[in-house]
């Protein structure tokens, strides 16, 4: 029986996607369906949390080369 599941489609590069998959693996509370290399569907209420976590993760990764502090 066909089902329609409410969610948010995310399109991103594979590197970003693998970070999301990793974040989800802790509690399995983000991803609804892993679609392909560059697409996944996540829970609507998790998008903001996810963006925040992704920001934190990327800041950690990039801090040595490019400081994200306001340069003005």
């Amino acid at each position: 029986m066909v089902r329609a599941i409410r969610g948010v489609l995310i399109e991103c590069e594979p590197a970003i996607k693998s970070i999301i998959v990793h974040l989800d693996s802790a509690n399995n509370d983000i991803i609804i369906e892993d679609l392909d290399e560059t697409h996944l569907v996540v829970k609507e209420n998790m998008v903001q949390v996810l963006k925040q976590k992704l920001d934190d993760r990327l800041k950690e990764t990039y801090r040595p080369e490019e400081p994200l502090e306001d340069s003005e």
Binding site: A4, G7, V8, L9, I32, K51
Partner: peptide, 15 residues
Amino acid sequence: ERMRTMAGFLFKDFD
């Protein structure tokens, strides 16, 4: 660019 998002519905489990 990092992430495009769109709210909607996933249709699956077709007979």
